[in-house]
Write a protein that binds this DNA or RNA. Structure first.
Lengths: 223, 223
DNA sequence: GTCTATAACAGGATAGAC
DNA sequence: GTCTATCCTGTTATAGAC
């Protein structure tokens, strides 16, 4: 069933195109696929090497341990996603425009690179001690970028946000979870999801004119 | 560090109180903790048995395999979360009230039972073939319940939703992801998060009076 | 039902030839 | 740099005493 020769790496993830030499990159791409499919712990080094068309031993020329492979993926992936978010948020325009762009691009990244994103978002716990700390710092930056946009819009009155930290968390969460459920065979393209989500998020922060739902206790019913 | 005697099960998760005999329940609770902390594949049967204050062999009297433990957790957990959602959504009141209640309770469940929820939401891929199908059916039910509320509110004009399936997915996603990031040592209680999220979701679906963001290209700025 | 002991095997990582 | 062969550890699951 699973042929063990000839490189077969499904992920055409250009995030790793800077990695050299070629064998190291193939291993990284193989690891991304394997980790995304089965999780870090369930993936064997034999599997990774096989996907790269190499013997198990060859892996250790390029990476000291399996965990180092995970760390590289996590680092490059986080750097990419942070830079996508930063570029979108730092571009000009109104805060609404910046927020919509940030959400659209961040979501799109998580869908288009859902294999990488899945590893990045769901295998953090498998990182070694020092490595984990380094990654957490990158995650903190994402959150700060997004919070900056929300704060700016709230201050100018363009948004109306009761709980900025909580809303930041919710928006991040919404975007990140795309990596969990997205499938290329699903109904929507990454861009469609990004556009839909940008709209939903703008609604979340839009000032409430006055016409709020007519029903009783819309915010906090009893019980 | 890790003592191997005496039952020590952290999760006081009442979801499993119906499980008998006592040893089987302790094993299940130990497995929930272990799977949530380290993931299914990284968890050893020694660890699970140890948490239940038993020897590794004793586990196999109550469960045929490690996967069967996962299946039981997943099944009971899904049943619980579906019933929490169903009760909240089926209660009376306006559609806004029902939606707010559904989100608040569903989120609260994912926070309060974040160990169980983490296993339920993130270890699906480790389930055996037949077991996986059974669980997917339960997940489909959750989605249908939520979609029902959104459809009802949209039809009556209480909500204004452009893309019902997409919005259903987004709301589910938002709630589910709480299990990933929630920590009991965080700033917010499960109920506070539930209330915040219910408010954000109501905003997502509220009719847009007219006062939308003043900035140019709020919805879809050029690239 | 639980224990101790162990079978049977898989996986991470290394040695040394090419 | 890559391969084949292998070491060694740790894992699931079982056998048989109590």
């Amino acid at each position: 069933m699973a042929s063990e020769a000839e490189p077969r790496v499904a992920a055409a993830d250009e995030s790793f195109e800077g990695v050299t030499p070629d064998a190291a990159r193939r291993l990284l791409l193989g690891a991304v696929d394997a980790f995304a499919e089965r999780g870090f712990h369930a993936t064997t080094t034999r599997d990774i090497a096989g996907r790269a068309g190499m013997s198990p031993a060859a892996l250790y020329i390029h990476y000291k341990t399996k965990e180092e492979l995970l760390f590289q993926i996590s680092k490059v992936g986080h750097e990419r996603s942070v830079s996508v978010l930063a570029e979108a948020a730092e571009g000009g325009g109104s805060d609404s425009g910046r927020l919509a762009r940030a959400v659209r691009h961040f979501v799109r990244w998580h869908a288009e690179h859902h294999t990488t994103a899945r590893v990045v978002q769901y295998e953090l716990a498998a990182l070694g001690e020092g490595h984990y700390e380094e990654i957490v710092e990158l995650r903190r930056r994402s959150e700060e970028i997004l919070r900056g946009v929300l704060e700016s819009g709230d201050a100018s009155g363009e948004f109306e946000i009761a709980d900025i930290r909580g809303t930041t968390l919710a928006v991040m969460s919404l975007c990140i979870d795309v990596a969990r459920w997205y499938s290329p065979s699903g109904r929507r393209t990454p861009d469609e999801i990004g556009t839909l989500y940008a709209d939903l998020v703008l609604r979340m922060v839009a000032p409430q004119g006055d016409a709020r739902g007519p029903g009783p206790g819309a915010g906090a019913g009893p019980r």
